[in-house]
């Protein structure tokens, strides 16, 4: 595991902004961190980077305590938009950041190339469009080829082409062995590039699994008659109106069981929902 948290909690007075969150990010994966606004995503990420101190629980980043130089020098991050000096050019901002990380200037050009910002690198940061600022933020995160990238809404402000480029970049990074923890409100984006997802709502982690598991690829929808009899026959099934949901079942043996019990089987198929539907169901958002 490259990131682990155990009952990680942040309270402000009586209010728990992050409430006993236990998550794990595996090496080499793209982990999507999903949640509505104010769910506690950014506070969790800030705790992983040592910007905010937890009031309870523990976290380890690359085996180190969050916020220590040993951890931070192996992590690149972009949190809630890029923080750069407005009067410096994009290139100079990266030079300042590289100096803080103890990196040579050659890293700056490599990072600029990765986000396709070489042509505009000499322009003042204050003149950048939102998308260019975001790309510069990602370039700063990429400096020194960190093992782990923590990107908070990296596609904010990017046009569709820029978003596609960002997805390609994230895929390329994982292909090179880097791990990405990505928070996003764009469910389609998460669905497309993330290996596993953690869903947070009201400060609590309500689900953590692969995208397929969340969407219900491992759940079978069974339409049978009489459905009540089928419900009794199939252990672990749940009744939803006139259909059953059966988790982790083998379709062939399930049909055999029902037919042998004289139950008419009208439909058996994987219960596929969009991540959006799952997300709304879990977070209570609509």
């Amino acid at each position: 595991m490259i990131v682990t948290t155990e009952k990680l909690t942040k309270r402000y007075g009586d209010r728990a902004v992050v409430d006993e969150v236990s998550l794990s990010v595996r090496r080499g994966e793209v982990y999507g961190f999903l949640g509505p606004n104010g769910a506690g995503k950014t506070t969790t990420i800030r705790m992983l980077l040592g910007l905010v101190k937890p009031t309870g629980g523990t976290a380890r980043v690359l085996g180190e305590a969050p916020g220590t130089p040993k951890a931070l020098l192996r992590v690149g991050s972009l949190i809630e938009g890029p923080g750069f000096y407005p009067y410096l050019s994009g290139r100079d901002n990266l030079r300042v950041h590289a100096a803080r990380r103890g990196l040579a200037r050659s890293h700056v050009e490599a990072a600029l190339e990765q986000v396709d910002l070489v042509g505009a690198a000499g322009q003042g940061f204050r003149r950048y469009s939102l998308g260019m600022k975001q790309r510069l933020g990602v370039a700063a995160a990429l400096l020194g080829r960190p093992e782990l990238l923590i990107l908070d809404e990296p596609t904010n402000g990017l046009d569709p082409a820029g978003m596609a480029d960002m997805r390609d970049l994230v895929r390329a990074l994982t292909a090179q062995g880097q791990t990405v923890l990505l928070s996003s409100h764009l469910l389609g984006e998460v669905e497309e590039i993330c290996d596993r997802v953690g869903v947070i709502a009201n400060g609590r982690l309500v689900a953590e699994s692969t995208v397929e598991q969340l969407r219900g690829d491992t759940v079978l929808l069974v339409r049978a008659d009489p459905v009540e009899k089928a419900h009794v026959l199939i252990e672990g099934s749940s009744l939803h109106g006139d259909v059953l949901h059966v988790r982790e079942a083998d379709a062939a043996s399930l049909v055999r069981t029902l037919v042998q019990a004289d139950v008419d089987v009208r439909e058996v198929r994987p219960l596929l929902r969009t991540l959006e539907e799952v997300f709304f169901e879990m977070t209570g958002a609509a």
Partner: peptide, 18 residues
């Protein structure tokens, strides 16, 4: 205001060093 402290403190140095 610029958010540069956030960038500085996640760059690697301890807060005392920063």
């Amino acid at each position: 205001g610029w958010g540069t402290w956030k960038t500085t403190l996640t760059a690697g140095p301890r807060r005392v060093s920063a």
